[in-house]
Design a protein around this nucleic acid. Structure first.
Lengths: 345, 345
DNA sequence: TGCCGTGGTGAGAGCGCTCTCGCCGCCCCG
DNA sequence: CGGGGCGGCGAGAGCGCTCTCACCACGGCA
């Protein structure tokens, strides 16, 4: 716990290099319009003094912070039980780092925190925000929109407010679900059940829609509500088995609930995939590879989603146009999914 | 993606309230030494204009940022496969939020990033740092110490540098391990094996030490090296079964590797706990409760560790002395562990 | 009544930076 | 050889805040 030492200022560097503050500033910010010998002298002075620009002073005049808030608005601590957010965070972090932006993490605890987050964002402490808020009734997106902070959402925000200018990155949940169900059908299965995710989230709703796209007139008893957790998967599977003992396949809304379903199936004496084929969603490696048997699933590139969110935001912020593409208001992106075949289906 | 609107300044509030900037500043910062009617007038003006202080301007003069960096220096993306960091982050976030500090997340990708992190910390953008760097040979703690940033480590840093003034928060890994092994011994088990964690981390080394404390002259073949992952647990368990088919208990360095071990034991036809008792470490709920059978384990309060790290740092920063206690250089804290009995042992 | 002490308020400097503008010297062209 | 243009550099203002200090109006005491 040492104390922070006094740090050299632009002034000090200028004095040492024998130039003006303005010139040092120019060199520090890229060196445009300064002749080589001077650039060299300034660089050396910076080096020798260990000069690091004071971000506060800089922000004060540029009104830029080179910082982005990441808002994770999950009511429950379930957030990190899933490796989901972690992976997305990693993708975000990589992209932000590549363009020298900092990541300010805002975790919310329940409703009261929304005001806090909104205040922070409205306070202009960051240049933009990446927001994870997937619940249908979440007031946060609205608050943020009112705060006027450039924002990219993680997952299609399911709220009823003004839709204009809303940018999000999502997986093709519906398409992926269709692919999953078609795969099961292609295996000759006809009694294909679905364990949904938490239906107040758009991803769960979309996957259910995808299931219905293929199973146009499916027996409604083949659908059981889960909540993306293993326990929820177990519950739903037991329910399904009770209602339709003759089912021969299950499409679970994510790998975690598939894992739960798998346990119940085994306990009930069914063999997977012989008696019942099971397919998950996410391709969460530590889960999908570790189940018994290993899980066939729909892969979504979560880290890439994070990276893309950051890239879109930065592009909208006009940060020297990250990674090419046309500058301007970016639009939402829906990433494709892939079927990963293991043994469960 | 709306543009940020121009925000009112102190000046504007002062004008509206008919007072000086200084008075507004005083009110905004607690209102000490300003008479009630004025306070009221200023408050109203702030409210009406929606004034939010410009943090950059404030930092420029106070040299405080009310921001803390959280550095996660895990080489591999394994970081978030474990819910570990997520939980700790949550604890940290809660505490920081309670004292109005922001959380700047710094994830590192391999060695090259160390310099970046060190530069950032040395740059004085944050008031302090919370660092997770548990590897023995990690140069980061040294770099940070040189940067002169007040720091609290998560887990005992295992490095050979200057130890003075190093503050950390850790679980009683050694004591917990002793309790685990004693519990197995109390069950009448005598051939107690140990699956270690990644031994370049202090927590793994400490747990191994704890095991040895009880099993003073254990057969060295009863120890197999794991790496805290389920796959590592499987590998180690197979190794152990090959070397010592007569073992009757296993203490795994964490729940994840215990889950792997459990699978191998079942595949080998052993009954748990009848033939082999198994105990884990961490009490990672989504893992420990979902194994078959549910895992007996050593619980550590991970969220509390995070909270404590933040509290210690803030206290060292002299932030109005969070949560009581003597002000001054804080010292390290080692949190106790608890045995959680489920069915595996 | 006069003086000092005290508490409340305002004026102003200055934190470290960026950016505009103006000056100066050089080169090119007539 | 002179003038205009241009590129390189420095001077200085000002971003929005905090904090010191001086000022003023009281009240208490002699």
């Amino acid at each position: 716990m040492t104390e922070t030492a006094p740090r050299p200022t632009l002034e000090a560097v200028a004095a040492r290099a024998g130039v003006s503050r303005a010139t040092v500033s120019r060199v520090v910010n890229g060196g445009e319009g300064v002749r080589e010998p001077l650039v060299e002298r300034v660089r050396r002075a910076v080096e020798e003094l260990g000069y690091v620009p004071n971000q506060a002073a800089r922000s004060l005049v540029t009104r830029r912070h080179d910082a982005v808030a990441v808002v994770v608005a999950e009511p429950e601590s379930r957030v990190f039980a899933d490796p989901f957010f972690g992976l997305q965070l990693r993708g975000i972090s990589k992209e932000l780092t590549a363009y020298d932006n900092q990541l300010v993490l805002l975790l919310t605890e329940g409703r009261d925190d929304h005001a806090r987050v909104a205040r922070y964002l409205a306070g202009g402490h960051v240049d933009g925000a990446l927001v994870f808020s997937l619940h249908l009734d979440d007031p946060l997106p609205g608050l943020i929109q009112r705060a006027g902070v450039p924002t990219v959402f993680g997952g299609r925000p399911g709220w009823s407010g003004d839709r204009r200018g809303v940018v999000y990155v999502d997986s093709d949940n519906r398409g992926g679900a269709r692919e999953a169900v078609r795969h099961l059908a292609g295996l000759g299965r006809t009694r294909i059940a679905h364990i949904t995710g938490a239906l107040d989230q758009t991803s769960a709703a979309d996957r259910l829609d995808g299931y219905r796209d293929v199973m146009v007139d499916a027996d409604p008893r083949l659908i059981a509500e889960g909540d993306f957790t293993p326990a929820g998967g177990e519950r739903a599977m037991r329910e399904l088995l009770g209602r339709c003992p003759d089912l021969d396949a299950v499409f679970a809304a994510n790998d975690l609930s598939a894992a739960g379903a798998l346990r119940v199936l085994r306990a009930s004496g069914r063999r997977v995939p012989d008696d019942v084929a099971v397919i998950g969603f996410d391709d969460m490696l530590p889960v999908a590879e570790q189940t018994d048997p290993p899980l066939t699933t729909i892969r979504q590139d979560i880290e890439e989603m994070g990276r893309l969110m950051a890239r879109l935001l930065l592009r909208g912020l006009d940060r020297r146009n990250p990674a090419g593409g046309v500058v301007g208001t970016p639009s939402s992106v829906v990433l494709p999914t892939t079927l990963i075949r293991r043994t469960s289906a």
